[in-house]
Design a binder for these strands. Sequence first.
RNA 1: GGAUCAUUAGCUCAGAUGGUAGAGCAACUGACUCUUAAUCAGUGGGUCGAAGGUUCGAUUCCUUCAUGGUCUACCA
Length: 500
Amino acid sequence: MENLLTNDIVKQKYANYEYLKENKINPYPSDIKKDIMAEELRKKYKSLGQEEISEKQYWVAGRMVALRGHGKTAFGHIEDFSGKIQFYGRKDELGEEFFEIFRKVDLGDFIAVKGNVFRTKTGEITIRMKEFKLVSKSIQPMPEKFHGVKDVELRYRRRYVDLIANSEVKDIFIKRSLIIQKIREFMSNRDFLEVETPMMHTIAGGAAARPFTTHHNTLDMDLYLRIAPELYLKRLLVGGFEKVYEINRNFRNEGISIKHNPEFTMMEVYQAYADYNDMMDLTEDIFNHIAIEVCGSEEIEYQGEKLSFKKPFARLTMVESIEKHANIKLDESMEQEDIFEIAKSNGIGSAEKSMSRGELINLIFEEKVEEKLIQPVFIYKYPVEISPLSKNNEKEPRYVDRFEIFAYGREMGNAFSELNDPFEQEKRFLEQISKRSDGDEEAHRMDKDYVLALQYGMPNAGGLGLGIDRMIMLFTDSSSIRDVILFPTLRPNKEEENKS
RNA sequence: GGAUCAUUAGCUCAGAUGGUAGAGCAACUGACUCUUAAUCAGUGGGUCGAAGGUUCGAUUCCUUCAUGGUCUACCA
């Protein structure tokens, strides 16, 4: 305990804690109840007149965030989850002894206050304190009340302090919850069933990414944290489910950035007897619906840029988007060598001779186009080489029936007509495996059981994956994914660890 | 992984071409019976991120390290 008393403020508050205990005030009681939330109370008495006082008394409770003493009276504010409420206490009503005890209550303590409701001269609805109880003693210093906490490291590491000090942070996470709730409601209304599939996989499949590894002791085997639920969800289509979705965490052992966190939330949707066009409509509907429901408008502002989620969103093939945004014309007569030369002559240094035609087209797209896709847009007709789980286009088998949706230059989602031909699927896996043996750590792994599942038959289906965190960034105007994840991944602070 | 910037009191921030540091809020003492970033008077609080080096002297200059931000790479 002693080593936690690191500074004078903590020592001082700890002394108050001891004083209260000695005076038979339990600093951490179990029996505190409250009658009403601050916001609700203010709403209820919003028409209360200047000299009026309520007959009824209420217990309100929350963190004491302000205290203004005036000799024989005091004003303060209690903050609960709904907002703040002012309280007012007078020595002539409460007595000497009460005031003596109340002096040992510190800013930051959770308290409960009981009293009638009245309106002050300045018009604020206020509780006139008749009784108070200590709810929970706080011995850590509170952050600065006016500027809040700005140190981002402190904000992410001790999110609770961030939440205490910066009310807009709380609002973002309330909005996050609302967005996810609205998505579930939307899916449910369309008869999609929410399911849960394993987070621990023996084969990390369904995406191109490096996985995290863990180990099961009793079975003595390595497991991977999933990089995508895709292959399990499609097994459900084999089993007879027709409309399923899952909203849950994926884990990818890769770089951290403003738009990447090692664990992130993804929604995947699968619908039998549908294709990628149906997924496009669904995606459009979801974004449009969330914009209206959560932001109250089809037009939102993100990082100073106006984004319109009015239907329909623009739709461009990958090749068209390259012509439109990079002014590079590709046509079907061009083969791998031609496209390689075009990439090189357009300054794409990472283009390599060993890349396939489709990989080169995709590279040009990523280098020259992606960042320019500010307004929501569907890019479709993806090269088959980079899409091992998608179905070939029937007319042009070099491409697959796949799209990605972009907004603000970022990939927000990915969807395709699901490849359900077990022979073609096995061939695609084998191609991926040869890429792995050539050193591509992100290439897909062979999943024999998945091929076996397809041999039982899977109806034609459309599948969609949406990056929920990135979507929430858009609708909360957050510049970093860390601002929409309560506890983003950080390195442990060694000094802090040594102290404890 | 690379580049770059940052790290000063509990919090938000100043500061010195190198002579061991200030403000506001918070804390403490006192005054004050309608305040709300309350006010007024006073007090305490710092290994200037860590370790080395240069120097008579380093928080300041140099090197390394730690943590974080941004960009970049990786990330379909």
